[in-house]
Design a protein around this nucleic acid. Structure first.
Lengths: 125, 125
DNA sequence: CTGCATCCAGGCGGATACTG
DNA sequence: CAGTATCCGCCTGGATGCAG
């Protein structure tokens, strides 16, 4: 790829997707939007995510200013995560996406079945 | 991961993200929404995507029923891609995401700078 | 409990060469 | 022009082990 004659919008979208577009980030934001405040292992259990990915994801989200980390230097240690203002505003577009998903997942599944059936027909033809 | 006690929503979101959540799919949809109809190499140049990924992405989008492929068996061959009804409806949540991105990318950049500065302070301290 | 470091497999994605 | 096939590097992401 030497070419870079794309629309500027694509760059923007690419940027935002590479920031908060990965599935774990989205899921963490959703979880926090439901529970207000969650601890590390609560999130881990809730999402079924590995420690590593949760750790990485939370660090990035904190770095991006979407999530606030509150650390209690007790023993054993306790860390709470919650959404920042911006994090909460992110729920809106995510919710839009979620609703679209709910509306269209069935249709997509149908389309896939149809497509796959046609493909296997082509093979047997 | 043996655990699977997550919220059902997470599964849904995960599904939709793994379907149309990758950056190339989103960018293809956006391009098609702007240009109505595009040929293979037009998309390729427009997005700065490799043939391989464009080919895979278009096939998936067609399979999911978001993109319609029109093939003219001429020489040289000509193939046009356009959004289906569902593909067009997908623009809505994507647009919401794009607007949020425009509004918040600057803030995110600021947050990152601040975070990184604090991190390097911690190192030098 | 909350993390970080390491290792390792699998998939994403680009470059290249080839077909129709 | 519109793809397919192959090779291969890179990054994601899980498993494990260790530290505070």
């Amino acid at each position: 790829m030497v070419e870079t004659a794309q629309c500027p919008d694509c760059k923007r979208i690419n940027e935002v997707l590479s920031r908060v577009g990965d599935r774990w980030s989205v899921l963490v934001v959703i979880s926090l939007s439901q529970y207000e405040t969650l601890r590390f292992n609560e999130l881990k259990r809730h999402l079924g995510i590995s420690q590593r990915m949760l750790s990485l994801t939370l660090r990035e989200l904190e770095r991006d200013g979407l999530v606030q980390r509150k650390h209690y230097p007790t023993i054993p240690p306790k860390v709470e995560y919650r959404l920042t203002k911006m994090g909460q505003s992110f729920r809106e577009p995510v919710k839009a996406l979620g609703l679209w998903a709910l509306d269209n997942l069935g249709t997509i599944d149908k389309a896939r079945e149809k497509y796959d059936a046609a493909a296997s027909d082509a093979v047997s033809a």
